[in-house]
Design a protein around this nucleic acid. Structure first.
Lengths: 340, 340
DNA sequence: ATTGTATACCAAAACGTTTTGGTTTTCAAT
DNA sequence: ATTGAAAACCAAAACGTTTTGGTATACAAT
């Protein structure tokens, strides 16, 4: 058995109270006693029992993250990087990270409810916000702390970090139009994701400034995986007049699109340009390398984590809403200017 | 405040003991009382306080996973898939998952120690086992439950799941030799990883059966990322006599190698064949698609998780060591047979 | 009438902390 | 000599459960 505070008390000949207070550096304990207690604790390898500690003081020093896992084969580099970002900052602040997995849908809210009510975590990190986001509605309704990666339409007051992807997509639009493209199609995820809405809006607006109208039939819906991108791109390629540029709303789908174009005997960047979004590490190693919009996922994870910890610690936030400026990463998948 | 067991007791007019026992379906509570208690609990939205529960019964119903994060940009699809596998099985058994992040090195053991001694988790999942693995040495020394993904040389008794990558690599060797390759080089990770040792051993053995000796100078060390694969492949390509096949020990490095070959104006699958290991989703969407060895990461995560839960629940394991049969996924990156 | 046993229940202890609401001692100021 | 304040300490309560070690009642068997 690991030693308890009681064992230390016995050893140093003081009361449990004094030991506890010594360890917490209260100033009604003499410096000598503090030293004595600390030494003893160190020697005995004392580490406080977390359950007991947390039961008493009502916080858990733990933040929750519920991984929305789709399908059995779930492998999005986005999440491992995001998680690393959250985890690093959390441990820097002495917080633990409780991760659950749950496919989006019915049961999801129960998972949140369960963790809230069983007192497992102090707050949540929400990722990939959705329109009419049940998770956020629930958490606000019970007044439970959270920070989101992504905005929620109509809820401008929630704490979030997001990238200004409207601007990112406008940069894509500008760039493609500059290169001479006019027939542009887009592979988007479900419009339930707010980031999809923002990105589409940015793309539309950006094109409109150049007098180009992005039509609904040119917006296909994929599932954010390579496979989804591949399939939707194939549909586009097989149209009588295929677009000269495919704008994928994330890198994974862009990678799929590149593959589809090549499998069709066309050349990426010449017959059809492709762009992505995220700038995952692989984006630099596709063939040709992928033009995309950079998102500092690791840092965003850190920021979200830090904000949440501030909130649950009740220290006032500098900014409750953070909107990052994106940057365009130009690579070869978008090709050279089109000759008329 | 969420209702406590005390509130239920008051409401149904029974003792706290009886309520607790009713909720746990003890058979010294009458069916009527059980029903009554359950209804009341349901109505009041009662969810047990986990800290209190766990303080009392000495288990935590939580499994720990310490993510070995390398560098700031940490984005290996391997981990999100593995995590999803662990998490799914864990929640199926009512277990929570506590994730920490920690770069390998000095501090790592402290992270383990801290979580063990503060009673945060019942057991650990260890990933990417290493030669002289401090984590495993520590956990065995304090007799703390864990299950590893990967073997550890000289510790054949630890519970683990692994893929028989010797055989996987032999299949690669056979296949490449069949295609006519003799000049084969390999991009491996650090030999600290036991999986690297097994894979190299399999490759060497497989080649030796065909009379080919894999020399040390033809084994380069990368860092498991696309970047590492790219750089090492470039070195190989720039040799006077470059190999005709590059065997990367994971898919990410293979993707980098493909990119390097293409950037050098050579053709993958014709001038140089490339193989990987893992069969991550992206492997099917490289250009050309990547020949690789499949590893069912999601399932392995599930198995490891399940085994650990059995162990901490003290239910006897059917098999304490599991070695999975690999399968070769033939795609175009390994090219057609070489004509002499 | 006594004993035994099954059924249904419960008071109090326990888990390892933190916090509350003190007490005791010492010493300076009056 | 008394009062006041500061310094150092501590017993007991509290957190919300589970578990221990019972008790009370009813009824059957002797």
């Amino acid at each position: 058995m690991s030693p308890s505070i009681r064992d230390i008390a016995k050893k140093v000949g003081k009361s449990i109270t004094t030991v506890s207070r010594a360890l917490h550096d209260y100033d009604d304990v003499s410096p000598e006693t503090k030293e004595l207690v600390r030494k003893a604790a160190e020697e005995m390898g004392y580490i406080a029992n977390r359950q007991a500690q947390l039961l008493r003081q009502k916080s858990t020093d733990t933040i929750g993250f519920i991984l929305p896992t789709f399908g059995p084969r779930f492998s999005d580099p986005f999440f491992s990087e995001f998680l690393a970002g959250i985890g690093n900052k959390a441990s820097a602040y002495g917080y633990d990270l409780l991760v659950s997995t749950c496919p989006p849908g019915e049961k999801e809210i129960h998972t949140y409810q369960y963790e809230v009510q069983s007192n497992r975590v102090d707050g949540f990190i929400i990722v990939r916000t959705r329109v009419e986001d049940e998770r956020i509605k629930y958490l606000t309704s019970v007044n439970f702390p959270f920070v989101a990666f992504g905005r929620v339409p109509g809820m401008d007051d929630i704490p979030f970090v997001d990238e200004n992807s409207e601007i990112g997509m406008q940069m894509i639009a500008d760039y493609l139009v500059d290169l001479g493209h006019t027939k542009i199609a887009c592979i988007a995820p479900s419009m339930n994701y707010t980031f999809a809405i923002h990105r589409i809006a940015g793309l539309k607006e950006g094109l409109k400034l150049h007098g180009i109208n992005l039509q609904e039939k040119d917006i296909l819906t994929g599932d954010l995986t390579e496979k989804g991108g591949y399939e939707r791109a194939m549909e586009l390629i097989q149209r009588k007049m295929h677009p000269t540029a495919i704008v994928a709303l994330n890198d994974l789908m862009a990678i799929g699109a590149i593959s589809a174009i090549q499998d069709s005997g066309l050349i990426v960047g010449k017959d059809i340009s492709v762009t992505g979004f995220d700038n995952i590490p692989s984006a630099a190693y596709t063939h040709p390398p992928l033009t995309t919009v950079h998102q500092p996922i690791f840092q965003i994870g850190g920021m979200v984590s830090e904000m949440l910890i501030q909130i649950v610690k009740n220290v006032p936030l500098e900014k409750k809403q953070i909107l990052l400026k994106p940057s365009l990463i130009k690579r070869q998948s978008s090709g050279a200017p089109i000759k008329k």
